[in-house]
Write a protein that binds this DNA or RNA. Structure first.
Length: 227
DNA sequence: GCGACAG
DNA sequence: ATCTTGTCGC
């Protein structure tokens, strides 16, 4: 599976900033997809010993949540972690992993924000534009925005806003457990994104896509550190 | 100036 | 994100 749009990754902070402003114009915040058979989960871990990023992409069956394919890649870090420019650090590794995938997904759940971002172009939106595929941003903590605490029962949510603009949802995926921050990545509406996240999180705080990718990345990280 | 700041 | 020690809540 290959990107439909590419741009250089070895760029300055300013260039990355400007590129985000340009690409943000291409983001679609409405449902624009056909049947979803396979859903992808993505996660990245950092190995300080080798200064490498480990990226995992896991493909799940959309109904059974069974893992049908998974790949892992390793890469040296090329871009520092800067809040707001997160995708320029992690996406090169993720793209590399997607290149190896044989079962193209119809939806990707990302570990990071979508348009809940200062320039409305977080990691999930960036990935969505590169592959022109529906993506959902799903963060454990927020980058920007204000919100009220949603009710403690699973399924409740409240709006994440930035200057009156709704940029995402604070969604409770389990009773009494901290909510997660869901935002539109690309080619999906916020309400549909929340429905999918609930469907993908039957028993855990984070969606199964993220959990499976995270598990794979951790195993790989451990093997790497043994050597 | 101070705090906030996806992973 | 990783690393790390102590501390808090169930």
């Amino acid at each position: 599976m290959y990107p439909v749009f590419i741009h250089p990754w070895s760029i300055s902070e300013t260039e990355a900033f400007n590129l985000q402003q340009e690409l943000a114009k291409k983001v679609i915040t409405e449902d624009q997809f056909a049947d979803i058979h396979y859903v992808a989960g993505v996660d990245v871990a950092y190995c300080s010993q080798s200064d490498q990023l480990i990226a995992a992409v896991v493909i799940l069956h959309a109904e059974t949540l069974e893992v049908v394919e998974s790949v892992v890649t390793q890469d040296t870090v090329q871009f520092p972690y800067i809040p707001g420019l997160f995708s320029f650090r992690e996406l090169p590794s993720i793209v590399k992993a997607f290149n190896l995938i044989k079962t193209p997904p119809q939806l990707v759940v990302c570990d990071g924000q979508g348009i809940a971002h200062p320039r409305r172009f977080g990691l999930a939106s960036h990935l969505g534009i590169l592959f022109d595929i529906p993506t959902i941003g799903c963060g454990k903590t927020k980058l920007i925005g204000e919100f009220e605490e949603p009710f403690i029962q699973r399924g409740n949510s409240s709006s994440l806003t930035d200057n009156e603009e709704v940029i995402g949802s604070v969604l409770r995926t389990q009773d009494n457990i901290k909510p997660i921050y869901v935002s539109v990545g690309h080619r999906i509406s916020l309400s549909t994104a929340c429905e999918w996240i609930l469907k993908l999180s039957p028993t855990y705080r984070l969606p199964e896509t993220t959990r499976q990718a995270d598990q794979l990345v951790r195993i790989t990280l451990l093997k790497l550190q043994e050597k």
